[in-house]
Design a protein around this nucleic acid. Structure first.
Lengths: 204, 204
DNA sequence: TCTCCGTTCTGACATTTGTCATACGGAGCG
DNA sequence: CGCTCCGTATGACAAATGTCAGAACGGAGA
């Protein structure tokens, strides 16, 4: 009923992009109308070629896949976004769904499978990789308050408390309080381990 | 003169693997004799099918590309290793060359280009991506002694000194000395920032 | 041989961090 | 209206960390 599906392919790895173009072109009902290697390029290409589905790599120079999807949502409604990722952390999935992304799959799927998922998404349905979904559910919601998360993020590069306090415009004592409570909420040994844990679960 | 080149393809991303198989098969003189999704699998496949060139992803479950290359060096000499990587840090290149790897390229190259490089490597020549080589040269050599690097690595996950001392079988005082000297050599604020710096430069 | 350097250790000290109690104002809720 | 939670802050104390000096041993090189 829907004829061909016009697809945009955005990935900074030429190897994947070229190869995927070749494989997806084998499918009669899919046609790659544009390719991009960076976030901004993907957006520009999408606006120029108006694809039905945008297949976006999560990690791209310029702007990541979710950011591109967010922009597409307003600037090109009717175009469904589908994120592919090499090694996805739970938080990304949540962020992606919040941005209106319709599909989220790891690069470990086969091209065959990806073709099917592109059709699924084009039909207006959602598709989230079960494994990634399970991870996201297992990770659960962040127990951190927004300030705690913010301060923890500033602590990520190993900066001392005084520097964090400056950058967050807080008193050093307050920063220590937030870090302390974040550390205890996460059950970590110290703030650096806490940063690592929060990163893994996608909470920062 | 050399007939066809027998190639092993190891990458945990099914998308890349399948697609690459398709594209490289278009080249008359290349034939994919085996595929693998993990390090150990790659090794087993190599021993079973005895390829001329092993194309190895740097990041794979089980054992990374360099480890596989190291094993291949002794267990299957005559098979040349070629590493492909998505986002490579300087240190990896050095490690790879030390392991006898003959080629090192980012996944941003085209399949066409990769085919040429496979031929180059098969002919006994080396190929290293100029950009990655430049990064590696810019990063320079590690100023850390082996113990300093070792201890710094154990500190990477935010473990307290006592735990590092246990794991390294050293006295806590010694660990603090090493960390202190590593921190000052790297010009970092503290050991956590030092870990970050050393990571960036590929020194751990 | 003699010296330098890396490894390992100890002890001492100052600084930073982690924890806790306590306090106050504001937002949301029953 | 009280209650609770969050954000913010201070002060105090204990623990961890960073820095320094010194010392012993062994190997590599001048």
């Amino acid at each position: 009923m829907s004829g061909v599906v016009r697809v945009l392919l955005a990935d900074d790895e030429h190897l994947i992009r070229g190869a995927l173009t070749a494989l997806l072109s084998l499918e009669d009902d899919l046609v790659i109308v544009a390719e991009a290697a960076t976030g901004p390029e993907a957006l520009a290409m999408a606006l120029a070629h108006r694809p039905d589905v945008a297949v976006l790599d999560l990690q791209m120079p310029g702007a990541d896949g979710v950011k591109v999807a967010t922009s597409l949502r307003t600037e090109l409604p009717g175009c469904q976004a589908l994120i592919v990722t090499s090694h996805g952390r739970p938080g990304h999935l949540k962020r992606a769904l919040a941005a209106g992304v319709r599909g989220f799959v790891p690069k470990t799927v086969s091209a065959q499978r990806l073709a099917e998922i592109i059709r699924t998404v084009h039909a207006g349905n959602r598709y989230v990789d079960p494994e990634l979904a399970a991870d996201a559910i297992a990770a659960g919601d962040s127990p951190l308050t927004s300030r705690e998360a913010e301060v923890l993020e500033l602590a990520a590069d190993g900066a001392p408390v005084t520097e964090i306090a400056e950058r967050a415009a807080l008193s050093p004592g307050t920063v220590r309080n937030y870090l302390s409570s974040a550390v205890s909420k996460l059950g970590a040994e110290n703030r650096h381990a806490a940063v690592r844990l929060a990163r893994e679960r996608g909470w920062v």
